[in-house]
Amino acid sequence: MLRNTLIVLVIVVLFLPLLPLLVWSFSQGWFFPQFIPEQWTFQHWIQVFSPASRVMEGLVQSLAIALTTTILSLLVGLPAGRAIGLMEFPGKAALKLFLLTPIIVSPLATLMGMQFVLIRLGLNGTLFAVVLVHLMPTIPYMTLVLASVFANFDMGYEIQARSLGASPLQVLSQVTLPLIAPGVVVGALFAFLISWNEFLLTFFVSAGRVFTLPMVLFTLLQGGNNGLTAAVAITSVVPGLLFLLLASNALQNETTLAGLGNV
C-alpha cells in the first residue's frame, strides 16, 4: 500500500510539470484567470512538423549527434573500462580521478580554449566538432560505468571461451558483451542523454551552423511563443523517455544480469 502510494507520488512529481506543457501546446493563448484555455488548436504541432520551424531538422541533428557520441564513447569506454576494471597498473587511482575532471570542471572554464583550438583546426561550426565536445563529458561517464561493471566480471569466462575455440572477436561478441550488456545499456543511456540535452557546449562550438533541438528550444524561449515552445519541449523529452523505457526493459531481464554476479 505504502509502496503504491510512493510510486504514485513519484509519478506525480515527475510528470505533473509536463501537464501544463501539454495544455499549452494545444492552446491558443492561456491567460491568467482561466483555469483551462478557452480556445484549442493543433497549430503548434503542425508548426513543429513544418520545415520552417526547423524543429524536425534540429531533432534529426540531435539524434545523429547523440547516437554518434554514444557509439564513439562506447568504443573508447569499453577497452578503457576493461583495463581499469580488470587490471592493476601504476597510477590507476590517479587516472580514475583524472577521468572525472570533465565532470568536475565547469565547461564554461574550458569553452574559450576549446573554441580557440577548434577555430585553429578549422573545425568550428562542424557536426564533427559538436560530437567532439560532447565526448568530453560522455567518455568519463561511460568509462567509469564500464570499469565498475568489469570490476565484477570474471575473466575466467573469456579464458574458458577461448579454450573452447572462440577467437578474440567471438569472445567479445558471444561472451563478454552479452555478460556486460546491462552496464553497456546504462553507460549508453548516460551518454545519449548527456549529448541529447547538451546546450552550452553545442551553442559555442556550433557557430550557429549546427542546430540541435536544445538550441531550437532556446531560440523559441526567447521568442515568447509559449504554445510552440511547449510543443517542442515535449518533443525533446520523447526520445530520452523512449531510450529509458528500452533500457529499463533490458535491465529487468534477469539473464543479462546473471553474468554480473553481485553488481
Binding site: 570474471d154 575466467g156 569466462y157 579464458i159 574458458q160 571461451a161 577461448r162 579454450s163 573452447l164 575455440g165 572462440a166 577467437s167 567471438q170 561472451v175 552479452p178 555478460l179 539473464t255 543479462t256 546473471a258 553474468g259
Partner: peptide
C-alpha cells in the same frame, strides 16, 4: 582457440546467458 586443448576451471564458469 587453435590448440584443441580444453580447459575446465574450478568454478565451472558456465556462460550464464
Amino acid at each position: 582457440e587453435k590448440r584443441d586443448i580444453a580447459l575446465v576451471l574450478q568454478r565451472g564458469l558456465l556462460f550464464p546467458h
